[in-house]
């Protein structure tokens, strides 16, 4: 196990992203070729679904945090549709069919539309974004996502003036999702953002990580990433985006309103009723670190000017 204090890592020690991506691409490609060639096997990660993404623009966000191992990012997941334990999504989500896939965008907009995933992959230039991800349970990761700003898609459908919120709905498929048999959450999983949060340049729709298409356990083929909010806000495997006037219901808020608010901004000063949010364990590190307001993304503070963040948690 790698146990390392982040302060000890000089920026010069961090492998340039182009370099590690190139290494990973090479290893992934040759690994896949060898596997596929030798055994003729169609393993989940050798299928076309986990292809290396081409023409990804390098990361524009300067972040000195060390990326979490790809192995950990793809094996330690909360995706209750595939089981409530962290290792279950990686085991069970292979059944998820990500082709064909469409995402419907409708509600209060002038140009509602249904997009095929192939169109979304080409919709805007794909960028790599190395983001911190803080789970409400007290752990965090640093993930090199690949995606494009949600704002690009929203602008394309021309929101009406009355559109104040955006609702995201995850696929609900009883045939491939063993977890939805149980009434743990009000399926399908839904999430929501205020329009200004949705339009913020940090908010992206991710289609890949570590330069490859998303694996099912990470929310393939397309998912939301809002890095200053707790991880559960990032709806996975999205099939529907709806623009609304009223604040939409969200899965965890409906399940326990006193524990999970609509905003769910990362905030060390607002405890979860059952645990403190002051610290977090970065996956791959043994000691804990202080949690930062808005997960360290201070540029979003303006969105909440004048709001009581303790009340609007």
């Amino acid at each position: 196990m790698l146990i390392r204090r982040p302060a000890d890592i000089a920026p010069s020690e961090i492998t340039p992203r182009e370099l590690y991506r190139a290494r990973r691409d090479f290893m992934a490609r040759s690994g896949r070729l060898a596997l596929a060639g030798a055994a003729g096997l169609a393993l989940p990660w050798t299928s076309a679904d986990a292809a290396v993404l081409a023409n990804v623009q390098p990361n524009r966000m300067a972040l000195s945090d060390k990326p979490t191992r790809q192995k950990d990012v793809t094996s330690y997941n909360n995706y209750y549709e595939f089981g409530v334990d962290k290792d279950e999504p990686a085991k069970n989500a292979g059944t998820l069919k990500t082709r064909p896939w469409t995402v419907t965008i409708d509600g209060l907009c002038n140009k509602p539309r249904r997009y095929a995933i192939e169109d979304l992959l080409k919709f805007a230039p794909l960028e790599e974004r190395l983001y911190r991800m803080r789970c409400v349970e007290g752990w965090s990761m640093v993930i090199p996502w690949v995606g494009f700003p949600l704002s690009a898609l929203l602008r394309a459908v021309e929101p009406q003036g009355s559109a104040k919120f955006v609702e995201f709905t995850t696929l609900l498929d009883e045939k491939t999702m063993p977890g939805v048999k149980y009434p743990i959450l009000d399926w399908p999983y839904t999430e929501g953002l205020r329009m200004d949060e949705a339009l913020h340049p940090l908010t992206i729709l991710a289609v890949g990580l570590y330069g490859e298409e998303l694996l099912p356990q990470n929310g393939a083929p397309i998912r939301l990433v809002v890095p200053w909010k707790y991880g559960f806000k990032n709806a996975k495997s999205i099939v529907h985006i709806r623009l609304t006037e009223k604040m939409p219901g969200t899965a965890w808020n409906k399940a326990a309103a006193n524990e999970y608010g609509f905003y769910s901004n990362v905030n060390p000063n607002v405890d979860h009723p059952r645990w403190s949010q002051e610290t977090e364990r970065r996956i791959g590190e043994l000691t804990k670190r202080k949690t930062l307001l808005f997960n360290g993304y201070d540029e979003v503070a303006g969105l909440y000017a004048g709001m009581d963040l303790k009340k609007n948690f």
């Binding site: 196990m1 191992r69 950990d72 094996s75 752990w139 996956i283 791959g284």
Partner: peptide
């Protein structure tokens, strides 16, 4: 498991 990376991504948990 703790000393051989055998406890998954979050060994303390």
């Amino acid at each position: 498991g703790f000393f051989n990376d055998g406890l998954g991504a979050n060994p303390v948990e």
